[in-house]
Simulated scan of single mutants.
Amino acid sequence: MKQYLLSIYQPDGDPPPPEFLEPIMRDLEAVNAEIRAAGAWVFAGGLHPPSTATVLRLKDGGGGEVLATDGPYVEGKEHIGGFTVIQAEDLDAALEWGRKLARAITLPIEVRPLEHGSSG
């Protein structure tokens, strides 16, 4: 089976208040449980805010020198806040998991196949 990255895009800024976030987290856990029960789960994780990121970039003409800068590489109104890696028979099956995830958390989900993402 192929592996797919389901990236969760969330808006910049403070998280929503608990009364809004708690039902979403319950729905998310229900989808995660369904993914596990179906044998499609590989792993998942949430990310700290973009302000905690360090970007490494090869310096132009720098003879191999790599520059480190704080924060995200690109300024934007949203960022990747978490991800799930699944295994699925094909893109259609991966997209269906992405739809379920999008319904649960009400945020955009990018579904992308991993290169060399076979589990056996």
Rank of each mutant, 00 (worst) to 15 (best):
T106M: 05
A37F: 14
A53H: 11
A93I: 14
E78G: 00
M25R: 10
E29H: 13
F83Q: 00
D27A: 14
R26M: 12
G71L: 06
W41H: 13
T84N: 07
T69Q: 11
G62Y: 08
H79M: 00
A53K: 09
I109L: 07
I24L: 10
L67W: 06
I35C: 09
L28G: 03
P108Y: 05
I105G: 01
D90C: 12
A53Y: 06
S7T: 06
L56M: 15
Y9F: 11
I109Q: 01
G46I: 02
G13A: 03
S118A: 10
E65F: 14
I80R: 01
V55K: 12
A93E: 15
A37H: 14
A37E: 15
P72V: 08
E78M: 13
E110M: 11
V55Y: 10
E22I: 10
G61W: 08
A30C: 13
I109M: 00
G13F: 07
G117K: 00
N32I: 00
P50F: 03
L6C: 11
R57S: 14
E96G: 06
I109S: 00
Y4K: 01
E89P: 03
L58D: 08
Y9Q: 02
G81C: 08
A44T: 10
V42W: 05
V31P: 00
E29R: 12
A30R: 15
A102Q: 07
E89I: 09
T106F: 03
G63L: 05
E78C: 04
G82Q: 04
R26Y: 06
K100E: 03
F43E: 09
Y4W: 12
P108C: 06
D60Y: 03
S118R: 10
D27W: 01
E115G: 15
M1N: 03
P16M: 14
D92F: 10
Y73V: 11
L58Q: 11
E34W: 04
E96D: 15
A38V: 07
E115L: 13
L95Y: 02
D90Q: 13
G117P: 02
L6P: 01
D27K: 15
L21K: 08
V31Y: 10
L114R: 01
L67A: 14
T52D: 15
L91R: 01
I24H: 00
G76P: 03
R103A: 10
L101C: 01
H79R: 04
R26I: 09
A33G: 13
R57V: 06
T84A: 05
D90M: 09
Y4L: 08
M1T: 10
F43G: 01
G61R: 09
T54V: 15
A94M: 01
P50A: 07
W41P: 02
E78D: 12
S118V: 12
G13C: 04
K77R: 14
E22H: 12
L58C: 08
L6G: 06
R26D: 09
H79K: 03
A44L: 11
I80F: 09
L101V: 04
